[in-house]
Amino acid sequence: MAVTKQSLKVMIVDDQNTSRLLMRDALDQIGITNIPFAKDGEEALKMMMTTPAHIVISDYNMPKLNGLQLLQAIRAYPPTAKTPFIILTGSGDRAVLQQAIKLGVNNFLPKPVQPAALQKAITAVVGNLK
């Protein structure tokens, strides 16, 4: 069975509630509605161990586990190792981007996220959705 917009589960990981809500609205605008939230990398990792998402979209700068640490942990756990991971960043810090690439990130999105850019990033990692 192919993954559709209705069945795609996209986890949003961000310590800022406003950012989580804006991301949910952007996903909603492109037809994706199965959207679990995590307020930090630690919570996201626990959720991924029990009920994995199809895609993780994570902020970089968070307490407990930052986006890179979360990416590294997800890649190290065999059941989630191939989960597409998109990192959000408010900064163009090249060192962060280079480290994310080394850890196996699938895509980057600058903040604030626009629905068209979000749809393009998701399509790049999972293909066209019906």
Score class of each variant (00 low, 15 high):
P52V: 08
P110C: 08
T83A: 03
D25N: 13
L118G: 11
I101S: 02
L109T: 12
V105C: 01
V105A: 05
M48S: 06
M62K: 00
A76D: 15
N34Q: 13
N107Y: 07
L21H: 09
K130D: 09
L27Q: 11
D15C: 01
Q6M: 04
L118H: 14
K46V: 14
G127Q: 08
A76W: 07
V3K: 12
R94Y: 08
F85H: 01
A38C: 07
N61W: 03
V56G: 04
T83H: 05
I32L: 13
Q16M: 14
K82E: 11
R24P: 11
P36V: 05
K130S: 12
Q98V: 10
Q99T: 15
K39C: 14
I57W: 12
K102N: 10
M1T: 09
A124D: 09
A124C: 06
D15A: 03
A116C: 06
K130E: 13
V125W: 06
P84H: 04
A124V: 03
H54E: 15
I35C: 04
D15M: 01
D25E: 07
L22K: 11
T83M: 13
V113H: 07
M1Y: 04
A121P: 08
A116P: 14
N66S: 10
P112H: 15
I101V: 14
A44L: 03
A121N: 15
L88E: 05
R94F: 08
R24N: 05
D59F: 00
Y60G: 01
L45A: 04
V3M: 10
H54C: 09
G92N: 11
A117V: 12
L45G: 02
V56Y: 02
I30Y: 05
L71N: 08
P63C: 06
P79I: 11
Q119P: 03
K9A: 14
Y77R: 05
K120P: 09
M49R: 10
A38G: 06
I122Y: 05
P110N: 15
A121Y: 09
E43H: 05
A124F: 06
M62W: 01
V113Q: 05
M49Y: 14
L27G: 15
L103M: 07
I30S: 10
A2K: 08
K46C: 04
L103K: 02
I32W: 10
K64D: 15
T4E: 07
Y60D: 05
G104Q: 09
Q99W: 04
G41I: 07
M11Q: 14
L109S: 12
Q98G: 04
A2W: 03
K82H: 10
Q69P: 12
K5F: 02
Q16S: 05
Q29T: 12
D15R: 00
V113E: 07
P112F: 10
Q72Y: 02
M23L: 15
L103C: 04
D25G: 10
M48Q: 13
V13M: 01
N107F: 09
I32Y: 02
E43L: 06
L8Y: 15
V13N: 01
V113C: 11
L71Q: 11
A121S: 09
L71E: 10
T123N: 08
P63E: 11
K120H: 09
L45T: 12
L103I: 04
G41K: 04
D40A: 01
A26V: 09
K111C: 03
A26M: 06
